[in-house]
Computed example of a mutant assay.
Amino acid sequence: MATVLHQEIVAKGYSGHYQRVKMAIAPLRRGLPIDTPRERPPSPRQIARWITTAPSRRGLHATETLQRLFGHCPELDRTHYLVRQFAAMLDDRDATPLPDWLDRLTATGFPALASLANAIREDQPAVVQGITTPFNSGVNEGRITDLKLQKRIMAGRAGVQLLRQRVVLMAHLRRRYP
């Protein structure tokens, strides 16, 4: 069916690929109406980005899609709630709720979240410092990222001298254009 349809529309000037026609009529083969718009499900990475973004900064589409997902998956809703609680600690620079939050994380019954809670507990003083102080290592992390990028770009084709020269140039440009 798709082959015949593709041949007919090519004769009328269609320059698209056969695969496109085949995908377009696939719902008909399954007995679905063709005019019903279908939304592509969001990727796990996209959902994670929506969850970690403050609700006030999310777009309408992301907010609506998240609400639908929360209706289908209460575990995701609980995870979102916990993430927002941690974000509130960071925004307020207040680590007092951290021990209770870690207990709630462990109590969810999700192995990944319980493992995260255990890892945070192992280094809790550093996490408290990270939450409560305004200092961070963002500048250093940016420099390290630049260095790794230069190494990847050069892919071992040049020596230390050229790498050093490119890193110094990168640092100079960063100072001029923050």
Results as ranks from 00 to 15, higher is better:
174 R>W: 05
171 A>F: 09
178 P>M: 04
107 A>C: 06
25 I>H: 07
98 L>E: 03
9 I>L: 15
130 G>F: 09
161 Q>E: 15
33 P>Q: 07
152 R>D: 07
116 L>K: 06
79 T>S: 00
93 R>S: 02
85 Q>C: 13
96 T>P: 00
99 P>F: 04
104 R>V: 04
116 L>T: 11
3 T>L: 13
10 V>G: 03
92 D>V: 05
125 P>K: 12
118 N>G: 15
39 E>H: 07
93 R>I: 04
16 G>E: 00
34 I>Y: 00
39 E>W: 05
135 F>M: 09
91 D>H: 12
177 Y>V: 08
61 H>V: 14
57 R>E: 13
31 G>R: 02
11 A>E: 10
169 L>Y: 08
150 Q>E: 10
15 S>V: 12
134 P>T: 05
22 K>W: 12
42 P>W: 09
83 V>H: 03
50 W>Y: 07
112 A>G: 02
163 L>V: 11
2 A>W: 04
106 T>L: 01
154 M>R: 11
74 P>R: 05
1 M>A: 14
78 R>E: 07
142 G>C: 06
169 L>P: 00
41 P>C: 03
35 D>N: 12
47 I>R: 05
17 H>L: 13
13 G>N: 03
138 G>L: 07
83 V>S: 04
152 R>N: 13
105 L>N: 01
153 I>W: 03
45 R>V: 12
161 Q>P: 07
67 Q>L: 12
82 L>A: 06
73 C>H: 14
178 P>G: 05
130 G>P: 06
53 T>A: 06
82 L>S: 02
167 V>R: 04
171 A>D: 07
175 R>N: 02
156 G>W: 01
130 G>Y: 03
21 V>L: 12
20 R>H: 14
